[in-house]
């Protein structure tokens, strides 16, 4: 790919053992508002705040509200509608526990202006993006690999 791809620095928070050193690619699902997992997740449909997340690389601010929310991430996975990876701007325990019990890789954005970044990324919703094998970078590729 050309060097003009948009790159976002990441820090891996949780990598299931079978995904270590593996590049993770999928369409990007961008959620710009904090997510109350209990309430905002429609597990059977694979939606978070109305955004399709199944098989995608989700980027969202962070989770808020009831700790029961962790079960909703598990439900997405259980129904076969789970995301390939979740990227948050701030680590929270509800999302972290959800990712860990569902074996979904979790990353945190390294950036000083999260809101601006999410606003910018909104334009790339449904574009293909990859998380590098070392978990240090999100590379937005465009419409196809």
């Amino acid at each position: 790919m050309s060097g003009s791809n948009l790159r976002v620095r990441l820090k891996p928070l949780y990598t299931p053992s079978d995904t270590v050193e593996t590049r993770i690619c999928g369409k990007l699902a961008v959620i710009t508002e904090p997510v109350s997992l209990l309430g905002d997740v429609k597990a059977e449909e694979g939606l978070i705040k109305g955004v399709r997340v199944s098989g995608r690389v989700v980027i969202m601010p962070y989770g808020v509200g009831s700790t029961v929310g962790s079960y909703l991430i598990y439900a997405l996975k259980k129904y076969g509608k789970g995301p390939k990876a979740i990227i948050v701007t701030k680590a929270d325990s509800v999302t972290a526990v959800g990712a860990v019990i569902s074996d979904i890789p979790l990353y945190q954005v390294v950036s000083s202006d999260y809101e601006k970044l999410l606003e910018l990324l909104k334009k790339f919703n449904e574009k293909v993006a990859c998380i590098s094998g070392d978990g240090g970078e999100l590379i937005i590729m465009g419409d196809r690999l």
Partner: peptide, 16 residues
């Protein structure tokens, strides 16, 4: 352990 009401955790919590 908390989160054991079927109304709160739903089918997802039950199956977990």
């Amino acid at each position: 352990v908390s989160g054991i009401s079927i109304f709160n955790i739903g089918d997802a919590g039950l199956s977990f």
